[in-house]
Write a protein that binds this DNA or RNA. Structure first.
Lengths: 330, 330
DNA sequence: ACAAGGAAGTAACGCGCGTTATTAAAGCGC
DNA sequence: GCGCTTTAATAACGCGCGTTACTTCCTTGT
């Protein structure tokens, strides 16, 4: 920077003013041009670390996930990343691998790097408890919530998702809709079932509990559940299946095809999660709902930026809709 | 840090010595204990940015990928990440989205952050040309190579992969092995075909060109190709299919099942890429080869660490084996 | 002609730390 | 008791930059 100043025939301060577009500093165009030329000629690059030190603003946000691999975390990262870079902020990403020790170590490193905020994301919607150190810095939870309900969080709107999926099947003319659910104890399963039942009631149909079977989140479990549903007498057999996730839909597909039934003519299927590799390549392609991971990532950075700037949050608990992806299974 | 020094009754320098385990500095246990106690009591955390500035070592490596989403990039990141954190180094990750402008911007930011090395990873094995700015810092290519052949690179061993897949089918007793290949012009397709033919020749079988058909990397393309192969007269029909990737294997599965043939009894299948969501949930589960993305990521950080330390590289071009994942389709 | 005010630019300090050169005290052999 | 080495610790500088307080020069109005 001193070299630039010397070459441009000004002081280092002036160079700094130009680089930061300092408001209130009167820099004639001619001087500015000389400085920019010098920067270009010398190939000068400001040192981000030194700037951070002097300005007392690191520009970093931390992002802790359980695993970096896996489509979910990757999408959150994508969303957060793009939003952050656009804002000239940067993401220090760490994976906890589900290990509290690694998680604590990662958090330590982040605090040493003076992150201005922390994003904590989980693979599936559930409650979490953070290490105490997380209180030292603004924190936003993504796809999870803390038991004490103190931290702001961003969650998928499971209820409206279940409603939307069911509604889609109702619109296609189905009235007996089987629901192969996830583990019934988790928030996703509870919310989606509520949405499912609300959609039915809104259509004037009384929810039939026997049409709801847990598939335990596996393809095999869903296969078994689908067999059970499809082998009922014709009058009780569902003409559509709403599956808790796409892997489960895969199992359901097998059960359906095995019985010589066609999708969607004989049985329609809606999945959940939009696991691209499954949904887009099943035959026929699977209509499913997407968990809005990328949107949750960007929203997380937004909220963090607000918090870091000292602004209050309008909403402490944000829910984001799960969009329906129309393919060929309905 | 001054507070710590004051509380411990020593100078800031002494605190620094303790923090860095400075060799040659004689610190009595008693003094060290007092300092560590003071650190603990005050909850002091060193400022990583300031350390970097003073020591002139940022501790950062940059990682540029085309997309952060997608299983490939995610695995590379996982590998690089775990290796880097273990070494107290950190990854500044950016996605180019295939856009040269974004790529250049990302690189600029990385250089401003004074990364000590750059990892450049692509989604599929191919040649690349880097922005000139990349020359300013040690660079290692992952899953790609530069046309000039100047930069060190890490590549999957396609030839041995093709050989291993074919060998597995030969070992299972197959002699007419169809190969539904990727776009024949790309390195992966070329290497794997070489391996395929070598394995055949080693088994005393003359490669039959008509058994090799491009599937153009899509499930539909592979489906068409598989139909063509399976509809040949019995004597010319392959009893096993080696597919260029798992999506293509998915298409092949459909063609096989449609004809009432069973996997693996009538037709065995080997895929490539180990796209977990497909390979592990197809029925029967798909035997496939994994691209060693995670290993490539860790190796990349290793090489970068060596380069950043000024050590010469033993090998300029590293290839890593593609392991066979045994499931149920052979 | 002169004060007032703005335009253009600078010197100097501090951010939090690593590191070198130096000092002061303590131990040791005789 | 004296010189010499080791031990323990420190003052002071610099890393690359942002920022504040200050100076100098030019314009403008009267």
């Amino acid at each position: 920077m001193s070299d630039v100043a010397r070459l441009a025939g000004v002081s280092r301060t002036t160079v700094s003013f130009v680089l930061n577009d300092k408001p209130g500093a009167a820099i004639p165009d001619e001087t500015r041009r000389r400085i920019l030329e010098a920067i270009d000629e010398l190939g000068y690059r400001p040192n981000a670390g030194a700037r951070a030190l002097a300005a007392n603003r690191s520009g970093w946000f931390g992002l802790i996930t359980e695993i970096v691999t896996g489509p979910f975390a990757a999408e959150v990262i994508t969303g957060a990343q793009s939003r952050a870079w656009g804002d000239r902020r940067f993401l220090l990403i760490a994976a906890s691998e589900g290990d509290p020790a690694q998680e604590a170590a990662a958090l330590d490193q982040m605090l040493e790097h003076r992150v201005e905020g922390l994003l904590y994301a989980t693979t599936w919607h559930r409650a979490v408890t953070l290490p105490k150190a997380a209180r030292e810095v603004p924190t936003v939870l993504v796809n999870c919530y803390d038991a004490e309900g103190e931290l702001p969080c961003i969650l998928p709107d499971e209820e409206s998702g279940g409603h939307r999926a069911t509604r889609r099947l109702l619109d296609a003319g189905h009235t007996r809709i089987g629901f192969i659910n996830l583990d019934p104890a988790i928030p996703a399963a509870i919310g989606r079932r509520e949405g499912y039942e609300r959609a039915l009631r809104e259509a004037g149909i009384t929810p039939e509990p026997s049409l709801v079977i847990p598939g335990w989140a596996t393809a095999d479990g869903a296969y078994t559940a689908a067999c059970e549903l499809l082998d009922r007498p014709a009058a009780a057999r569902p003409t559509a299946l709403f599956c808790g996730n796409d892997r489960m839909a895969m199992g359901a597909y097998d059960a359906i095809k095995e019985r010589g039934l066609r999708i969607p003519h004989d049985v329609a299927v809606v999945g959940f999660d939009n696991q691209e590799l499954i949904a887009a390549y099943l035959r026929p392609k699977l209509t499913t709902l997407a968990l809005p991971f990328e949107a949750m990532g960007t929203k997380g950075v937004d909220m963090l930026a607000a918090l870091a700037a000292g602004q209050p949050l309008d909403t402490h608990r944000v829910t984001i809709d799960c969009p329906l992806l129309e393919r060929s299974s309905v």
